[in-house]
Design a binder for these strands. Structure first.
Length: 224
DNA sequence: CTACCGATATTCT
DNA sequence: GAATATCGGTAGA
């Protein structure tokens, strides 16, 4: 087998390419959205913001905040590793990881450079490109196209090739199309066993695209 | 509602 | 080398 010594080139996902070859993910958020704030502050502001990639737009309906070295549930808890180092860098970048060998999950890096803070994007409602999203999620009801972090990335065509790419942020380019006031609820994060008591999950009330809560199997309440 | 389990990169010991 | 994991689909009670 003749293999090249070069780094294998991943097939780029659809979307505009950046100079580094990765694809662009954009975010249209509310006025005043500032990813340099800590994730706990940013997370609720992201509800209603519109994330775009791979020909699909979706309105975020469920997110979770993860802090860094102070948050036992964060991948950054034990300090930087090759996987988590992106979270320790400047805000406005994208952290993608592979979960359980099967699903990708996408986070937006927040907080000042040198701190680790990120918001996991858990669910959204598709507002444009629904045909593309359906083709990536065959047989799934529209309301569930981006329900759950793994399904959200699948609907958008986000995978590890997006890890470390810069987010195109457009604050003030809102976001919600209807003017209905949104009720935001918060509660414990999904599938988290350490620091399971922290109510750092935020979602829109009465929103059918929000994923079901699942408590982690193993619970360690010694780190509340 | 709960339980199981696939499948694998990354981290931990 | 072993354990873990920001999960999701399915089966069964």
């Amino acid at each position: 087998m003749v293999a090249t010594d070069h780094v294998p080139t991943r097939r780029p996902a659809r979307g505009r390419a950046q100079p580094d070859g990765r694809t662009v993910i954009t975010l249209a958020g509310p006025p005043g959205l500032d990813l340099a704030r800590r994730s706990l502050e940013v997370a609720p502001l992201l509800l209603g913001a519109v994330l775009s990639h791979g020909g699909v737009d979706l309105e975020l309906t469920e997110v979770e905040a993860y802090e860094g070295v102070d948050d036992p549930a964060s991948h950054a808890w034990r300090g930087p590793t090759p996987r988590s180092s992106i979270m320790f860098g400047p805000p406005g970048f994208v952290y993608v990881y592979l979960s359980h060998g099967l699903h990708h999950a996408v986070n937006l890096v927040c907080g000042p450079d040198g701190t680790a803070s990120a918001v996991l994007l858990r669910a959204g409602r598709v507002t444009a490109g629904i045909g593309v999203a359906r083709s990536r999620r065959l047989g799934v009801a529209d309301v569930a196209l981006a329900r759950g972090p793994g399904n959200l990335t699948r609907a958008l065509g986000i995978d590890l090739a997006c890890n470390g790419s810069r987010l195109g942020v457009h604050p003030g380019a809102t976001a919600r199309q209807d003017r209905r006031p949104v009720t935001i609820r918060s509660g414990p994060r999904v599938g988290v066993s350490r620091a399971a008591g922290r109510p750092w999950r935020f979602w829109m009330a009465d929103e059918p695209s929000v994923s079901a809560y699942r408590r982690a199997v193993r619970i360690d309440e010694s780190h509340p």
